[in-house]
Design a protein around this nucleic acid. Structure first.
Length: 589
RNA sequence: GCCGGCGUAGCUCAGUUGGCAGAGCAGCUGAUUUGUAAUCAGCAGGUCAUCGGUUCGAAUCCGAUCGCCGGCUCCA
């Protein structure tokens, strides 16, 4: 979703960044140090270094000053200079970051400044013709940001803003932001009683409440069933292992900082697992493997713990303890192509089932520092690329972006409000099979090294669940909903009948409850609606008389009266067929 | 980890220059028996994140710690 630099929106946002910088300097003095102010996917920012701590309370004044500059309709003037002239200009302005940025410009590239009014900035452009062309903008927030993104550099203040060609588009964007906020899984997680994180327990550790745990168990059942179908076997492995194991795997060498500290048991150090691979490998090594045994596809919902820095934790999306839907495939060279195709096909099916259809892939190739034979890298990359083409998945090649131990495909799925999430990953590993000396006996009766592929479809159950909550805005489809239908008797005279209805539905393994509270029907409908329950079944005297229920679907109002069994079948069908939303067609009269 | 902001009842939030800690919703009890998005009344609920300091007096000012939020960095 990168903007084309030639586009009006790009130039407008880029120009707005200059206007913001000009406004900040008008308000806080010309000694404000400027770094850069690029356009972004949905706005722009500018990085400043100034004594005053900027905050939202400063935004109205900055916005007002920006409006003035826009009203002044200052033309943007492009000024091409020599390097010496540029140095002199920047030194005159005493801009220490700009002087370093100047040094980054390649010798063969033109050096340009852009001037609008009193404001002059080293800049590649392009810009709009004059500040009056900037139509609709709004400052959003301010946050710290390392100069050049390096942890050891000074922290600048980054002011984020957004800008659009029309007021209407800006309002739409702000509404989308508001919509995203309403869907925030942390908010819905509390409101729908799905999960929590407890301060007493520790950050990044998830407690699944009954509602969330119910959804999770359905997802896991589905996952297991489909894995068996796809030719996988399931494993369960320990949560901890001795340091010698992690020494062999190399984790203690390059991953120790991200592992939970060891505990001493019987004079041995044990580490909580940050990954499942070594355990799967141990099972592989537990006997001699023949080429006839391959491919082996071993999957595990493996719970791992990683020490993530406190500042990076985020709801369910970045946690310290999580369950990977992990699998390892061990195969022969002539099997890998087929295996990769199968994984991609499987991944597509899984995502589609949950309602995600827009998937893009990133193929990461061999980095400079890496292990493994070149021929293996080439075969692996070719098989990954071939599979992507075969399945028609759009992809970009990230040249040299692979892990040191092998090439990979990362897939991003787009949710219904346009955000992308990295989930599925398929990674070759040329490192662990060496370290653990994995072998299989070939048809030639000689030992060979198998290919090993790590793959996760969801990535982690926690993260996937968080994404699902946001995708559905908490309104789970019938097959996933913790409570699929709530039965609402009009008065307590229908309580017995309501329980009979509930029993009929439960006999079909539907998840239903009876709201027995002596509240008015309107109040109980409201509560069921807020709990985002797919179906509400209202039963009064008339329904009890007829052996029927009045069906109300989430968000759709009264659909009419139908017999209990017909209603049960309707809900059951949606569950079995995994419909993404409840059927809201009215019952035929 | 870094920069900035924040932490008051289960939730959402008031709380003035330092002077007796509040509301709505949720909860509990009672009344109401209701026909498709909020019935009424009463009750209960707090070590103002934690620890320390300043002060006659701290939710309020200062410091530390913990946690959360927005980013940055990180996510072999």
């Amino acid at each position: 979703m990168k903007l084309d630099p030639a586009s009006l929106l790009y130039r407008m946002r880029h120009s707005a960044a200059h206007v913001m910088a000009a406004a900040v300097r008008r308000l806080y003095g010309s000694e404000v140090q400027l770094d850069i102010g690029p356009p972004t996917e949905d706005g722009f920012y500018y990085d400043f270094d100034l004594e005053h701590r900027l905050g939202p309370e400063d935004f109205p004044a900055i916005e007002a000053e920006m409006a003035k500059i826009i009203a002044e309709n200052q033309p943007f003037e492009r000024i091409e200079v020599t390097r010496d002239e540029a140095t002199a200009l920047i030194e005159g302005m005493k801009q220490r970051y700009k002087i370093e940025r100047l040094a980054d410009i390649p010798a063969d590239e033109a050096i340009t400044f852009y001037r609008n009014g009193e404001f002059l900035d080293l800049c590649r452009g392009p810009h709009v013709a004059s500040t009056g062309e900037i139509k609709a903008f709004k400052l959003l927030n301010v946050a710290g940001s390392y100069y050049r993104g390096k942890e050891t550099n000074p922290m600048l203040q980054r002011v984020y803003a957004t800008a659009f060609a029309t007021r209407q588009e800006l309002d739409d964007h702000l509404r989308r932001l508001e919509e995203a906020k309403q869907r925030d899984h942390r908010k819905l997680g509390r409101e729908l009683d799905l999960f929590s994180i407890q301060e007493d327990v520790g950050p990044g550790l998830i407690h699944w409440h009954p509602n969330g745990a119910r959804v999770r168990s359905i997802i896991e059942d589905f996952w297991r069933k489909e894995h068996f179908r796809a030719g996988y076997d399931l494993l369960y492995t320990p949560h901890t292992g001795r340091s010698a194991l992690w020494q062999t795997s190399g984790h203690l060498g390059f991953y120790k900082d991200s592992m939970y500290a060891p505990m001493k048991i019987d004079e041995n150090e044990y580490f909580i697992k940050p990954m499942n691979c070594p355990f799967h490998i141990e099972i592989y090594k537990s006997r001699i493997r023949s080429y006839r045994d391959l491919p082996l596809r071993w999957a595990e919902l493996g719970t791992v713990y990683r020490y993530e820095k406190a500042g990076v934790l985020h709801g369910l999306l970045r946690v310290r303890g999580f369950t990977q839907d992990d699998a390892h495939i061990f195969c022969t060279p002539d099997q890998i192509e087929d295996e990769i195709v199968r994984v991609i096909r499987f991944s597509n099916f899984i995502w589609k089932t949950f309602g995600f259809t827009e998937i893009t892939a990133y193929l990461a190739t061999r980095p400079k520092e890496s292990v493994g034979e070149e021929s293996r890298w080439q075969q692996a990359i070719a098989s990954l690329e071939h599979a992507l083409k075969l399945e028609g998945i759009p992809y970009e090649v990230d040249e040299g972006g692979g892990a040191f131990y092998g090439p990979k495909i990362d897939m991003k799925v787009r949710d219904c409000i346009g955000r992308e999430w990295q989930c599925t990953t398929i990674q070759f590993d040329f490192n662990l099979p060496e370290r653990f000396e994995l072998e299989f006996v070939g048809a030639d009766n000689q030992p060979h090294r198998p290919y090993m592929v790590h793959r996760a479809l969801f990535g982690s159950i926690e993260r996937f669940f968080g994404i699902l909550v946001e995708q559905y805005a908490g309104a789970f489809p019938v097959w996933l909903a913790p409570e699929q239908a709530r039965i609402l008797p009009i008065t307590d005279k229908q309580l017995d009948y309501a329980e009979q209805v509930a029993e009929r539905l439960r006999a079909a393994d539907l998840r239903v409850a009876v709201d027995r509270r002596p509240e008015k029907i309107g109040a109980r409908i409201r509560d069921a609606q807020l709990a985002k329950i797919p179906y509400m079944l209202v039963v009064g005297g008339r329904e009890a008389e007829a052996g029927a229920v009045a069906v109300r679907a989430r968000g759709a109002g009264d659909l009419g009266v139908m017999p209990i069994d017909a209603c049960r079948d309707r809900i059951k069908k949606e569950e079995v067929e995994r419909h993404l939303a409840p059927d809201v067609s009215a019952v035929p009269a």
